[in-house]
């Protein structure tokens, strides 16, 4: 008998009732948790005017939007995509170039950046149409490395390794990115928009097709779902969202450099989705927000920060995989057995 079956058979009626109630309520909680958190985030500046917290949350919103886009391809469609950082960078560089060298307004530059990254994502999906599994992972890693190198070695366009500097003041909806509070609300609005959009997308026919392709692409094809089109749509939308986040990154940080879009940052974004889990948009977004926030809170730990974060990640993976649940069940069983044995044992004094 499997461990899980043993758990189900041994549990008391009260425990079973709790488990069933939790199983019923959990999807609802997960569905509404992020919108509630987003709503509460609008109130944070009223209870806390710490610029550090606002800056950390601003970066968390950018990461949240990035992973929401990546959740479509890596989470829902199951494409091992490690190139989200590339499209993030492409959006950032496009926006920076347009506002600086061509004097475009930020909103217009952002729209163009979204279009450019969307088209780039579509081209990427076309060129990798026949590449699957591990090979897709390799291609996406190669793209990420190549893009960072291109940005570093094309100083006439990208300002080279030292990064893109000299950005003008950028405004959106009358709010200036020079003001940290305005930047916070702009990034929060962008994140809310992306989240709502992605939540809608995953409930459409294409969203459900993505999950079908992930679990069994042969079955998906037999049902008339085009795996190629589904993957292309997930990559195109995900890239366009990354471009949008990149544009807001330019506004909020006002400095970009090739290293920010290299393999390591790109892999971190993919890691958030992997920890968050398959086909769960709220979970991946929560992971991105919480880990970005924790990274800053652990900064005071210095050298130990990386280790502590590693332990947090291990626990998160164990929790998602049910390892902690099984371990706690075994521990409870063992303790219950010990209590039972102690109760049944003859009293030594008698």
């Amino acid at each position: 008998m499997s461990t899980r079956a043993a758990i189900v058979l041994d549990e008391s009626p009260k425990d079973r009732w709790s488990r069933e109630r939790l199983a019923a309520i959990w999807p609802l909680v997960l569905r509404w948790f992020v919108p509630v958190v987003i709503g509460l985030m609008f109130l944070v500046p009223f209870v806390n005017d710490s610029r550090l917290q606002l800056q950390v949350l601003t970066i968390a919103f950018l990461n949240g939007a990035l992973v929401a886009g990546l959740a479509l391809s890596l989470g829902y469609t199951g494409v091992l995509n490690f190139s989200q950082g590339t499209f993030y960078g492409l959006g950032a560089y496009t926006t920076a170039l347009l506002v600086t060298d061509y004097g475009l307004q930020f909103w217009l530059a952002t729209l163009i950046a979204v279009a450019v990254t969307g088209v780039a994502g579509w081209l990427f999906s076309l060129s990798t149409g026949r590449v699957k599994g591990d090979y897709f992972a390799l291609v996406s890693i190669a793209l990420t490395i190549a893009f960072a190198q291109l940005c570093a070695n094309l100083p006439s366009v990208t300002r080279g390794r030292e990064g893109f500097f000299g950005l003008p003041e950028m405004r959106l909806f009358g709010l200036s990115f020079d003001d940290s509070l305005a930047t916070y609300y702009l990034c929060l609005l962008m994140f809310a928009f992306v989240y709502v959009l992605m939540a809608r997308v995953v409930r459409t026919f294409y969203g459900r097709s993505m999950l079908t392709v992930r679990y069994n692409d042969v079955a998906a094809r037999s049902m008339g779902i085009s795996t190629f089109t589904t993957k292309a749509i997930s990559l195109t939308i995900g890239s366009a969202v990354a471009g949008l986040a990149g544009a807001f990154m330019v506004g909020s940080i006002q400095f970009i450099r090739p290293e920010d879009f290299g393999f390591n940052p790109s892999f971190m974004i993919s890691l958030y989705v992997i920890i968050g889990g398959v086909g769960s948009l709220p979970a991946v977004v929560i992971v991105a927000l919480v880990l970005t926030y924790l990274q800053e809170q652990f900064r005071g730990l210095g050298d130990y920060r990386v280790g502590v974060l590693g332990i947090v990640v291990i626990f998160a993976v164990f929790w998602r995989a049910g390892v902690l649940r099984d371990a706690s069940w075994r521990l409870r069983q063992r303790l219950a057995g010990r209590r039972l044995r102690r109760k049944d044992a003859p009293d030594a004094d008698v």
Partner: peptide
């Protein structure tokens, strides 16, 4: 060695 970390440290 990260740009975004530099901005959060500046905010701190």
């Amino acid at each position: 060695m990260s740009t975004s970390a530099a901005t959060t440290i500046a905010s701190r």
